[in-house]
Design a protein around this nucleic acid. Structure first.
Lengths: 142, 142
DNA sequence: GTAAATTGTCACCGGTTCTGTGACAATTGA
DNA sequence: TCAATTGTCACAGAACCGGTGACAATTTAC
C-alpha cells in the first residue's frame, strides 16, 4: 500500500467542500457528487476533522465544511490524516533475532532508507495545496 | 502495500551470494543463512536471474551465483525485478465514467503525481549498489 | 418536547494480495 | 542410473481493503 484510495477519496470530498463554501455539505450530498458511499465519506472526513482541516457539525442542517482556506490545506496533511501506514512499509516482526543476523541487518538498513524516502515524499506533498489541486483539475463549478 | 518483503528477501539472498563468489549457492544454503524458505528463495532468485543479475544452474552442484560485480548491481534493478506493483498504486477501475466527473479528474491528477514520485524513488534507488549495501550492513564474512 | 436529520463509529462480508509451504517435473552432473 | 538442484505450480492461512448496513449520539426545527 501503498497509497490507498483513501487519499483520493479525501481529496475528492475536500474538492466538493471547496467548490461551495457557503454552507455545510452532508455526507449524502458529497456521495451524490462523487459516488462514494456516505458512510465512507463520513469516516474519512472524520479523520480530516480530527486534524482540524474540516469542521463537522451534527444534527439538523449539519454537515461538513472546510475549516481553512484551500490555499492553506496541504496534501501532506491530508495524506498523514488518512494513511496510517507509511508508503514503504517493511514488516520486521519476522526478523528472527540473533539466529539469523543477516535479515535483521538488512531490514534495519531498509528501514532507514524507507524513512528517508518517506521524508522526501512528504516534502513533495507539502508543496501542494488543495487550491493547487482545484486549479489543476478545473473543477466544474456547481 | 507496498514495498513488500520481497525486496528485502532479494537483497538478503544477493548479500549471501556476494559474500562468497567462489561457487554456486544452493537455495538450501541460502535458506540456512537467512531463514527464508528454500522455495521462496528460488522463486525470488529466479526473477533476478530473468533480469540477468544472477546466474542459476540446475542439476548436481548447481545453484545461484552473481552474474556481475556487486558494484554494478543497483537497488533499482532489484526493486523492478521483484516488485510488479508500483509503490504508489491507485486503483482507478472504480472511477465510474462520466456519471461522476470528479473522481476521474482527481484520480487522473493523482496518477500523474504518483508516476512522478515513482520516478523520484527509482532515481534514488539507482544510486545505491549492492556493494554499498554490503558496506553499510558490515556483513559478517563467512 | 417530539421528531427529523445528521455525524461518529462499529461490525460484517467479500475480494484481493502476500507469505509460507509442499509437491513435482525438468535438468544436470557424478 | 541416480542424486541434487532449479523452476514452477497449487494450496492454505493471514492480513488488508473497500463496500455496506446499522445504530447511538447529537442538534435543529417545529
Amino acid at each position: 500500500m501503498s497509497a490507498s484510495t483513501k487519499l483520493s477519496t479525501a481529496v475528492q470530498a475536500l474538492c466538493v467542500l471547496a467548490a461551495d463554501r457557503g454552507g455545510a455539505h452532508s455526507s449524502e450530498s458529497i456521495s451524490r457528487a462523487t459516488g462514494i458511499h456516505p458512510s465512507r465519506v463520513r469516516g474519512i472526513l472524520a479523520m480530516l476533522a480530527g486534524e482540524g482541516m474540516v469542521v463537522a457539525t451534527r444534527g439538523f442542517s449539519g454537515g461538513f465544511a472546510l475549516a481553512r482556506d484551500p490555499r492553506h490545506i496541504h496534501l501532506q496533511e491530508i495524506y498523514c490524516a488518512v494513511e496510517e501506514r507509511k508508503a514503504f512499509h517493511l514488516d520486521v516482526t519476522r526478523a528472527g533475532g540473533t539466529q539469523y543476523p543477516l535479515p535483521s541487518r538488512v531490514n534495519g538498513w531498509f528501514l532507514s532508507l524507507f524513512a528517508d524516502i518517506q521524508v522526501q515524499i512528504e516534502d513533495r506533498m507539502r508543496d501542494i495545496t488543495l487550491a493547487d489541486i482545484l486549479r489543476h483539475i478545473r473543477l466544474p463549478q456547481s
